[in-house]
């Protein structure tokens, strides 16, 4: 998911207040920025929303990698609009995090120094045009699984950001599938590209949901706070059940010999991804971790004079206006 492995913070608050807080959440009353909240809730949310925002911003890079090589004018515009949406989603989420008393610049610094994480999926390369299809179809497909329920999350600003994001996101997965259809129905080379993209993105997409957390105390607490709405396994199962028929429609083969319909559970049985690879990627050893952080750092450092220049001008203007009054 865009926020993976979020640990909850223990709270040392007044039990009476905690009970009232939990009662509000249980009654589906939204928590708003100026309401009392347990310190653990606040810190966990900053971590989760911040990581989600970072994922949107870093997520611009693998797809942005193909904007200048998109094969038609229309594809170029669609891809540019989509990657621009991701910048917008990052912006909405940073703003939601800011209501919790952290600044966007603080969060940015933590991303750039490697202290805060972003989704593991964006550390994989986009090698062919079919990868852009696969990212839309699989990666956005997996993200939507998580984002739709998060519209009901307990924290008001987060919930409102997710509602806006889901509204704008609806075309992302569709455009990805549309690319895959064109590729799957295309030339021999295009079909090979499409299958290769599915082969490379299948397991990393399953990893997006994170390892099983059915037994995790963090997960239990976060679900009680309604900042996590489903377990990782539930969402992963739902994703596989939704995606396998789509792959069949495309005439592509999901790279899993153990994939089989299980009548009894009403879902597919499937192989677990290689979790050692997942932890390697989180540690910084994915194929593109270095490039992604370098690109974000370069944009931030190269842009410093612009941010400072425009702010200095605004201050001069204000001073001149005050002097004239």
């Amino acid at each position: 998911m865009y926020a993976q492995m979020i640990q909850s913070e223990a709270s040392q608050d007044d039990p009476q207040k905690l009970a009232e807080f939990q009662a509000r959440i249980d009654a589906d009353i939204k928590i708003e920025p100026r309401d009392w909240m347990p310190e653990g809730y606040r810190k966990t949310l900053i971590r989760q929303i911040g990581q989600h925002a970072h994922s949107e911003i870093v997520g611009q890079l693998p797809e942005g990698n193909w904007i200048t090589r998109a094969p038609t004018l229309e594809r170029k515009m669609i891809l540019l609009a989509k990657v621009q949406d991701e910048a917008g989603h990052g912006l909405y989420l940073y703003c939601a995090a800011e209501t919790l008393g952290v600044s966007r610049d603080d969060l940015t610094e933590q991303l750039l120094s490697g202290k805060m994480k972003y989704s593991s999926i964006f550390n994989y390369p986009t090698l062919t045009w079919a990868d852009i299809g696969a990212v839309g179809w699989l990666v956005d497909g997996a993200a939507i699984m998580n984002q739709v329920p998060l519209q009901r999350t307990s924290y008001g600003p987060y919930s409102r950001a997710m509602i806006r994001i889901c509204k704008e996101e609806s075309f992302h997965q569709r455009q990805g599938f549309d690319i895959m259809m064109k590729m799957a129905q295309g030339t021999e080379a295009q079909r090979r590209m499409a299958q290769d993209a599915l082969n490379r993105f299948w397991y990393p997409s399953l990893m997006m949901f994170g390892p099983s957390d059915a037994e995790s105390v963090h997960s239990t607490q976060n679900m009680a706070w309604k900042i996590k709405m489903n377990t990782n396994d539930e969402l992963r199962q739902k994703f596989v059940d939704q995606t396998v028929p789509q792959a069949e429609f495309l005439g592509l083969t999901v790279p899993d010999e153990n994939l089989a319909w299980n009548e009894e559970k009403g879902g597919y049985d499937f192989s677990e991804p290689d979790w050692s690879e997942f932890f390697d990627v989180l540690k910084g050893n994915g194929p593109c971790n270095t490039e992604r952080l370098e690109a974000r750092n370069k944009a931030w450092d190269d842009g410093a004079w612009v941010r400072e220049g425009l702010l200095a001008h605004a201050e001069k203007k204000r001073a001149r206006k005050t002097a004239a009054e």
């Binding site: 909405y92 966007r104 409102r160 950001a161 806006r164 001008h313 605004a314 203007k317």
Partner: peptide, 8 residues
Amino acid sequence: VGSLHAPD
């Protein structure tokens, strides 16, 4: 509708 950052 939301927030954003700007110099002025």
